[in-house]
């Protein structure tokens, strides 16, 4: 299998603390790769470096073979890497459709267009609606985003990422704060999404991770201590000791 994203010896320190301490990682094209680890393991710091929000101290990130270590986040997005946020970052005052349409607009040429009303551009609205249909939110398209439930917000968050047309999606705890039913719906949804995109999933919910992931990497204190299939990870002694054993 070919690697879409390659991370080589990535390091990032804050003060004396090594949040990312020599991470090497390969994400294969089309797989759903989960990263698990205890709180403070450096998962969010890692995702921020992959999306470009944080610049690593050293190390290399390759995407499709191209070195993107120093590329700013908007250029990475143009290359096909996007992320969702752990804390919902939707525009609450705008409609659900508006939120998705802005993402569609991002891959529809440049947006230095000043006169025509964005909400009246049919193909942007239509493609945004299609994406909402894909995630099962089409009936909520015209609702103000603030009126959606927390579960719907999480779904919309992913719809926005999908609408950018990204090939690689970095999902930062999409299950965060979801109750039983919503959580099951999200797992279902990610199962359907799986295979159509390359997904790097950071998640606390172990049931979700073991149900979804093709491969799992375990991050502890900024280091990857093991990578393998869900079964291999379950059986790994180090992992049990460092992480799963604590439960």
């Amino acid at each position: 299998m070919s690697s879409l994203l390659q991370v080589r010896d990535l390091r990032k320190s804050f003060g004396g603390v090594a949040a990312t301490d020599g991470v090497t990682l390969d994400i294969h094209k089309g797989e759903l790769h989960a990263i698990i680890g205890p709180n403070g393991a450096g998962k969010t710091t890692l995702i921020a470096q992959l999306s470009g929000a944080l610049r690593p101290d050293s190390g290399v990130i390759l995407y499709n073979g191209a070195n993107i270590t120093r590329r700013p986040p908007h250029r990475r997005a143009r290359l096909g890497i996007t992320r969702s946020f752990q804390i919902t970052s939707l525009v609450m005052e705008m409609s659900v459709l508006d939120n998705v349409a802005l993402a569609v607009q991002a891959r529809d040429g440049h947006s230095f267009r000043f006169i025509r009303a964005a909400r009246k551009i049919a193909h942007l609205r239509e493609r945004a609606r299609e994406t909402l249909r894909e995630v099962g939110l089409e009936t909520r398209a015209d609702a103000p985003t603030a009126e959606l439930s927390h579960g719907e917000h999480r779904q919309l968050e992913i719809a926005v990422a999908l609408a950018t047309g990204a090939e690689m999606m970095l999902l930062d705890e999409p299950m965060a704060g979801l109750g039983g039913t919503d959580s099951a719906r999200m797992i279902d949804f990610l199962k359907r999404l799986k295979g159509t995109r390359t997904i790097l999933l950071i998640e606390h919910d172990m049931d979700a991770v073991f149900a979804l992931a093709d491969r799992i990497s375990v991050l502890v204190y900024g280091r990857i201590i093991a990578t393998g299939s869900p079964d291999e990870i379950r059986g790994n002694a180090d992992v049990r000791h460092a992480y799963l054993g604590e439960e």
């Binding site: 929000a53 908007h74 997005a77 993402a103």
Partner: peptide, 10 residues
Amino acid sequence: ERVVTLGYNT
């Protein structure tokens, strides 16, 4: 950050 992540140079 959201808008940048979509690919816009804000």
